[in-house]
Amino acid sequence: MRSNRLTPLLLAALLAAPAAAHAGDPATFVLEMQDGVLTPARIEIPAGTEVKIILRNTGTTPAEFESLRLRKEKVLAPGAESFVVIRKASPGEYPFYDEFHMDKGQGVIIARQD
């Protein structure tokens, strides 16, 4: 007769396994911010869907992702990583910038209708 109980070893292995991505997870993009240089400076996203943008400050000075049209703002210390979620943006262009480096830290998010 087989037991339906999980052995402690199997249970530990299941809990340690990384979570699998689900079909409903948002599309994810990465934006690197390095002392005013934004890479990429142009991000194309699908309109009308939830999108996650991972923000990485790889520079030696603070950075601030800001988009007035998207109503998003995030300050990052040097070496920090965070994210913003954009929920169902309408088709169009959404400028963003690094507020600590206004002279060169400019970019745009393009929401495209497929």
Rank of each mutant, 00 (worst) to 15 (best):
P95I: 08
I53F: 12
V85I: 10
R71P: 01
R56H: 12
V75K: 10
L15F: 14
V75S: 04
E81G: 07
M33P: 00
H22Y: 15
L55F: 14
A47W: 08
A80S: 02
A63H: 04
E64Q: 07
D114M: 13
A12D: 02
I54G: 03
R2M: 12
I43T: 03
F29C: 06
V75W: 15
A77Q: 12
P62R: 04
V51N: 03
L70G: 03
E32M: 11
L31W: 01
L68K: 14
D35T: 00
N57Y: 10
A111E: 11
R112W: 11
L6F: 12
A41F: 13
R42M: 10
T49P: 05
R69L: 15
D103V: 11
P46M: 07
G107F: 09
A41Y: 12
A47M: 01
I110G: 04
L9A: 13
K88I: 04
I110V: 12
T49G: 08
I54W: 12
I43Q: 02
H22D: 14
P78N: 02
E32A: 10
R87S: 04
D25W: 08
T60P: 00
I45E: 04
D103C: 05
S82W: 12
G92L: 06
D35S: 02
A77I: 06
N4D: 15
M33H: 06
R5Q: 11
L10A: 14
A23I: 01
P78A: 02
D25V: 00
A23K: 04
N57R: 04
Y94E: 06
F96Q: 00
Y97V: 01
L31S: 00
L55H: 02
Q113M: 11
A21R: 08
L11M: 03
T7Y: 13
P40L: 13
T28E: 12
V108H: 06
D98Y: 15
P18N: 05
G107H: 05
Q106E: 15
V84F: 08
T7R: 05
M33F: 12
L10K: 13
I110H: 07
R5W: 15
R69T: 13
E50P: 03
V30P: 00
L15M: 09
M33L: 05
R56D: 10
R112G: 04
Y97N: 08
L6K: 10
A63W: 11
T28W: 12
G92K: 03
V108W: 08
V85W: 15
G59W: 01
M1R: 13
R2Q: 08
L31N: 00
G107Y: 05
M33T: 01
A19N: 01
A17E: 05
K104Q: 11
A21S: 09
T7P: 00
L15T: 02
E93T: 15
G36Q: 08
K104G: 00
L15A: 09
G48E: 08
R69H: 15
F83T: 01
